[in-house]
């Protein structure tokens, strides 16, 4: 499996990368870890004439926990997320989710930016970013632009990012309360049959805030405002959890594929969402 020919570029800063993108338009693509894009190129499902490798751009790397905000550079790898003690303390849901992505070799090179920017509904970070209320920071020829994770995804592989823009980082408020990222997959290395990210805060036995988002259950990640709202103000007992699961399942639109028919996926989604909510509450 040999990809079609391309020109390889390895700029050392963002402005140089943007200049190449501007010059070549949609004949150019940026390369992060490459573990989504290179397989597509090998299958010749992606034809790219100019490949812009971002690995030398230092300003796209790094994790900062500063005050109440966490910022993660687009070229930060899943392995670096897992390995970062400050991040594990401030937002443990990221470590829990990243450990469930692919396998060790893929996590050493797979990046946060690639995972969120590509628009693959199977990727785990988009749903997680929607759960956390993250903001994506893009740069293009006209300057920088911020897009809410909850507004970024339009359809499978279709996002709000323009062809001449690069995603430079993601940021989100330090999450509070209990968390869980629950994922059902057929085997290591597969995408989720269903996955769910939950953050819940409790005060005095009552839920004060809840955010619930799902992965690979529609052609985009799904953040269910209703499912979170159902929990708020309750004691998060079995009745409230059941209502939240029902609201979340009502928001998804899975399609049949080699992971199963629609009925099966809705069933698995219900199980996974319930587990995620229960585990998040148990940690709140």
């Amino acid at each position: 499996m040999i990809p079609a020919r391309f020109e390889y570029h390895r700029p050392s800063d963002v402005s140089a990368a943007l200049a190449i993108l501007t010059e070549h338009g949609d004949d150019a693509r940026v390369l992060a870890g490459g573990h989504s894009l290179i397989p597509m190129m090998k299958l010749r499902m992606a034809a790219i004439e100019h490949l812009i490798d971002l690995q030398d751009i230092a300003e796209l790397k790094g994790i900062s926990v500063d005050g109440g905000t966490i910022t993660i550079g687009a070229m930060t790898t899943q392995h670096e997320l897992i390995d970062n003690a400050d991040l594990a303390k401030a937002a443990p849901i990221l470590r829990e989710a990243a450990l469930q992505i692919a396998d060790p070799q893929v996590r050493y090179v797979g990046t946060v930016g690639g995972n969120v920017a590509n628009g693959d509904p199977g990727n785990d970070m988009p749903g997680l970013m929607q759960c956390l209320g993250a903001t994506f920071h893009l740069v293009g020829p006209g300057g920088t632009r911020d897009v809410a994770a909850r507004d970024y995804y339009e359809a499978a592989y279709m996002t709000d990012r323009e062809d001449d823009e690069i995603l430079v980082s993601v940021s989100f408020p330090v999450p509070e309360g209990g968390y869980a990222y629950e994922k059902q997959k057929r085997k290591i290395g597969d995408y989720a049959t269903a996955a769910c990210a939950v953050q819940v805060t409790m005060a005095g036995g009552s839920c004060t805030a809840a955010s619930i988002a799902m992965t690979n259950l529609s052609d985009t990640p799904i953040w269910s405002k209703d499912a979170g709202a159902v929990l708020v103000g309750t004691d998060c007992g079995p009745g409230a959890i059941g209502a939240a699961v029902d609201a979340a399942v009502a928001a998804i639109d899975p399609t049949e594929d080699n992971r199963g028919p629609v009925e099966f996926k809705k069933h698995v989604a219900g199980v996974v969402i319930r587990r995620a909510i229960e585990r998040a509450i148990s940690r709140a």
């Binding site: 390889y8 490459g34 490798d53 392995h79 070799q105």
Partner: peptide, 21 residues
């Protein structure tokens, strides 16, 4: 994983890396 090598101290599947990288 049969093609696993180490690149700069990371285990990597060398079928999914261009030599250019």
């Amino acid at each position: 994983g049969a093609c696993t090598v180490e690149i700069n101290g990371k285990s990597v599947k060398s079928c999914t890396v261009f030599t250019a990288q």
